[in-house]
Amino acid sequence: MSSPTHTADDTWQIGETTLSSRFLLGTAGYPSPDTLRLAILASGSQVLTLGLKRTLAVPGGGDNGFVQIIRDTARAHGAHLLPNTAGCRSAQEAITLAHMARELLGTHWIKLEVVGDEQTLQPDPFELVAAAAQLIHDGFEVLPYCTDDLVSARRLVDVGCRILMPWAAPIGSGLGLLNPWALRTLRARLPDITLIVDAGLGAPSHATAAMELGMDAVLLNSAVSQAHDPVRMARAFRHAVEAGRDGHRAGLMPTSDVAIASTPVSGQPFVLP
C-alpha cells in the first residue's frame, strides 16, 4: 500500500519484491472482518500473514469471511500474503504445510514456524534448519521464525535463508525486547541478512526500539488485534515503526554514564574564571 509517509529511498526486499512499509501485520484475533480490513489499511502494511488449518474439522470451516477480506484487501492495495506453518512440531509437518500454502495461496513465501517447547512456543532450531534446507531446495523464499541465538541463526543462513525473523519475546506475550543485546549482536554479525523482529511486541514503543537497533522490519499481530481499538493501534504501530527506522537512519547519539551539558554556558553563569 502506498503511503505519503513511506520514503521512496528506503525500500527493502523479500526475494525479488521491493517493499516500502516495514510493518508486517498478522491477521488473527480481530473482532470482525471489517475491523481487520480497517486495521490493515491503517497499518499501511504490504505483507499480511495467514495460517492453514484443517478447517473441515469444523462444519462450514468457521472462517466467517476473514480470509476473503484479507485476500480482497491485499488484492485491492497490492499487499502480499505470507502464509505460516503455525502449529507444526516437526520439519516434515512444516514442509508439508508449506507446500499446501503455496498451492492454496499462490506464493512461494513461507513464514517457517516449528515449535520446540509447548509453554514458550520457542522455535526448535534443529527442525527449523532441516525444514529450511528442504524448502529452499523446493523453491521457497523461507522466512524462519527463530530465536535470537546467533549460532542457530547462522545455521539458517548457511542453508540459504536470506531473511530471519528473530523473536523479541514469546508469541503473544507482549513483553517487548527481552534481550536487546542479542538482537544487536545479530544485526552486527549478520549485516547482509534481512532481520524482521517477530513476536512478543506489545507496545508501539517496542517496535520503535527494535527499529532503532537496526532491524529491517517488524511483524506483529496480537498487540493490534487485541487492542481496545485495533485500527488506532495499527496506526500507532505504523508511526512507531517509521519513527524507529528514521531514528536508526539518522544515527543515535552515543550514550554516557555521566552528564554532558548541552547548553554552551562556559561554566557557572556568575562565577569568574
Binding site: G29, K53, T55, L219
Partner: peptide
C-alpha cells in the same frame, strides 16, 4: 486423508 484451508494467522 486430511484437507487444509487458509485461516487468519500471525
Amino acid at each position: 486423508v486430511l484437507c487444509f484451508s487458509p485461516i487468519t494467522g500471525g
